[in-house]
Design a protein around this nucleic acid. Structure first.
Lengths: 360, 360
DNA sequence: TTGTAGGCGTTATCAG
DNA sequence: CTGATAACGCCTACAA
C-alpha cells in the first residue's frame, strides 16, 4: 500500500482511506489512488486488516462428516448466508469424536473466527464451547440441543417426528412395530421396564437418536401396542452394512415385526437392503418408515415413506442466528425448532392380519 | 502474551519462545511460562502469527456446490489431508458461475491462503487463476484439466471411461445407443458430420462432459453402430427434473435407442426415472449405463451398471499435490489421472433382436 | 540463555 | 480533508 500511496502521490493514510472505504477523501484523490492501485495490481491483505480490526470475516463450522448428505447440505446453507454477509466459512470434520471436535474448536478460536456453528458430538462435555462463548465467540448448535449450555440451537422435534412416524404405522393396524436406531455406544441408552405397566422407557441424554427412541416408545405406549426389547435393534455407527445386519436380525426373529421405523438415513438404507435381501415384499410383508428425505428414497421400489427434514434450512437458520449474535444480539439463548414432515409414500400399508411367511 | 510474561516474571521474548516452541529457553522457565499461560487462559493469536510469518495455514477450496455428493466427498478428502498437515480449508461455492468463482478466488487470496484447490467453471477464462499463481499461491485443478494453465490437475480419463461404457453396450449387441449428456449451454458443443463417413464428431473445449461425448462418439464409430444426432440429448443444468424430460424425449422417439449412457450422476438419475415413468423394463426394453457409483445405484431395481470414480481419492490427491507445491516443489505441472471402473450390474443386457413395443 | 527493539500491512487517532 | 504516527500480537535479529 505504501507503493500505491507513492505512485498516487499521497500519504499511506489517504491511500488507506481511499481503498478501505473509510474516512473522507476528496473524490479526485480517491480515483487517483484507485487508479494507482489498479496499475500496481494491489490487493488488500486481509490478515493485516484482521490484525488491526479484530474481525476476520470468518466463521467456523464443525460437523461430524462433510461427506454425509445431511452435513453437506447444511454446510451449503451456512455458506450461502455467510456469503451474503461477506464472510467465509472454515470447515472442520469431527468424525463424531469429542477430542477432535475440541481440537477443531481450539484451532478456529486461534484463527479468530467470529462465530462457530457446531453439530456437537457430546451433549455433556461442553467446556470447549463454553470457553468460546466466554471469549466472545458465539456458538450456534446444529442438530443437537444442549440444555446445559446457554447457546442457541437449531433442531427438529425428534421425539414428535418419531412419534408421528410410528403412530402412522400403528394407525394402519400394525401391533408389532420394530425400531432400528442409530446410537453411539458411548451414549449408553438403557431400556428399562416402567413400573407397573411392564412397558419400556429409555434412559440417556437428550440426543436425536435417543429422542427418536422416546418418540417410538411413547407412540407404542399410547396405542397399547407391543412393547418389547426384541423389537428394538441398535446399530452403533454410521455404517450401512452394520445397520443391514441388525435389520436382518430384527426381521428374521421368530415373531418378526410387521412394520419397522428407522431413525436416520443410514439405518433406513440398511433396513431397505435387509428387507430386499430377505425377499420380503414391501409393504405386503413389512411396512417401512425411514428418516430423511434423500433422493434415493423416491427412486427405489416402492418409494419410501419417510420423515423429512430440511438440512438446508437448518444450516441457513443456524448461520442467520450466528450473524445476529456476531452483530451483538444478546437476547437469551433460544432453541429454534424447524418443522419435519411425514411424507407418506408406498412403503407403508395396512397390516394384513392373514398369515405371513418368509424365510426368516 | 505480555500478561503471561509479566505473570511468569520473564520478558515477552522468553514467553514467546516458551509458548511458540522456538529458540532456546531454560526448562524451568519454560514450565513457569506455560503454567502462567494456563492460569491466564492464554491462547496464541493465529492472525498475528500469520501476519508475522506470512503463512496462514489455510487453504481454499472452490467447487460448484458442496451439497453435490461429488464435491462433498472430494472436500472430505481435502479436509483429511489438510488436517494431517495442520491446515484448515476455507470453502467457497461457485455455483458453476465464473464471476462467483473469480470473486471467491480473490477473497481467498486476500485472506492469504497458501494454496487453492479449484474445480474450475471455465476452461478458457483463467486470468484469476494465473494471478494466484503469479502471487505464489499454487493452484490444483480438480475434475477438469486446463491445457492453457501451468497448474496441476487431478482428473479421470473422461473419454476413455465413456468409451468403455459405450463399448460395453455395443459389445452386448446394441446398435442404437443413446446419450444423455449434461453440458453447460455456454460450452456450446457442436455436433458436426465428419467428412466422408457421415459420422459425427464434437467440437468444444476439453471438459468432462464434452470428453465423455467424445468417448461415446469414438466407441460408436469404432463399432460401426448408428451415429445420429437424434440419439443424443443435452440437458443444460444440474437439474434432475430437466434431465428426466430430456431422457423421456430420447426414449419416446419413433425409433428409440435400445440402450442409453448418461454422463453424470444427475442425468443418470433422470434417465432412470424416465425409463420407469415410461414403464420400460430395464434391461429388457432398454439397457442403462450411468456415471458415478452413488449408493442409490445399488438400491434401485435393477442395480445400475455405472462408471465409478472416487471423488474421495481425487480430493485427497489434489490436496497432496497442493501441499507438495506449498512446500516448494516446482516440478512442471502434471496431469494426475485417477482410474475409473466400469461396474457391471444388472441394468445392461444383450440386445434382444425381437420386436419391442412401448407406449412412446 | 535472555532481553530489547523493530517490523509485518492495516486502520485509528490526532494534529495540521 | 490530509498527513504523520502509533498500535494490533507475534517473531526474529541482535545485543547483552
Amino acid at each position: 500500500m505504501a507503493d500505491v500511496a507513492r505512485e498516487a502521490g499521497v500519504s499511506v493514510a489517504t491511500a488507506g482511506r481511499a481503498l478501505g472505504n473509510y474516512g473522507r477523501v476528496r473524490d479526485d484523490l480517491r480515483e487517483q489512488v484507485q487508479a494507482a492501485a489498479e496499475r500496481l495490481g494491489y490487493s488488500p491483505n486481509a490478515v493485516a486488516r484482521s490484525m488491526r480490526s479484530g474481525g476476520t470475516r470468518s466463521i467456523g463450522f464443525v460437523g461430524a462428516d462433510i461427506s454425509n448428505p445431511y452435513f453437506a447440505t447444511a454446510m451449503r446453507g451456512i455458506c450461502d448466508v455467510a456469503r451474503e454477509q461477506g464472510y467465509e466459512p472454515i470447515l472442520a470434520n469431527s468424525d463424531d469424536r469429542l477430542e477432535v471436535e475440541r481440537a477443531a474448536v481450539s484451532v478456529l478460536l486461534d484463527k479468530q473466527v467470529e462465530g462457530i456453528v457446531v453439530a456437537p458430538t457430546s451433549v455433556t462435555d461442553v467446556a470447549h464451547l463454553e470457553r468460546a462463548m466466554e471469549l466472545g465467540v458465539p456458538i450456534v448448535l446444529l442438530d443437537r440441543h444442549i440444555g446445559a449450555l446457554a447457546a442457541d440451537s437449531v433442531v427438529i422435534d425428534n421425539e414428535a417426528a418419531a412419534y408421528e412416524a410410528v403412530a402412522h404405522l400403528l394407525g394402519l393396524g400394525h401391533r408389532r412395530v420394530g425400531l432400528l436406531a442409530c446410537v453411539d455406544p458411548a451414549e449408553g441408552p438403557e431400556l428399562a421396564a416402567r413400573t407397573g405397566t411392564g412397558r419400556l422407557t429409555v434412559r440417556g441424554a437428550a440426543r436425536p437418536s435417543i429422542d427418536r427412541i422416546r418418540g417410538y416408545l411413547a407412540a407404542v405406549d399410547d396405542h397399547r401396542a407391543t412393547s418389547s426389547a426384541e423389537l428394538i435393534q441398535y446399530t452403533p455407527l454410521s455404517d450401512a452394512a452394520q445397520a443391514q445386519r441388525r435389520a436382518e436380525a430384527l426381521l428374521t426373529q421368530p415373531q418378526p415385526p410387521t412394520a419397522v421405523f428407522a431413525t436416520d438415513n443410514v439405518t433406513t438404507q440398511g433396513l431397505f437392503m435387509a428387507a430386499r435381501r430377505r425377499g420380503l415384499a414391501i409393504p405386503a410383508d413389512v411396512s417401512l418408515v425411514g428418516f430423511d428425505d434423500l433422493d434415493w428414497t423416491t427412486l427405489v421400489d416402492p418409494p419410501l415413506t419417510v420423515v423429512a427434514q430440511s438440512p438446508l434450512d437448518m444450516g441457513r437458520a443456524a448461520a442467520v442466528r450466528l450473524f445476529e449474535r456476531i452483530k451483538g444480539d444478546d437476547r437469551p439463548a433460544e432453541r429454534i425448532v424447524l418443522p419435519t414432515e411425514l411424507v407418506v409414500r408406498s412403503s407403508t400399508a395396512e397390516h394384513s392380519h392373514g398369515v405371513r411367511e418368509h424365510s426368516g
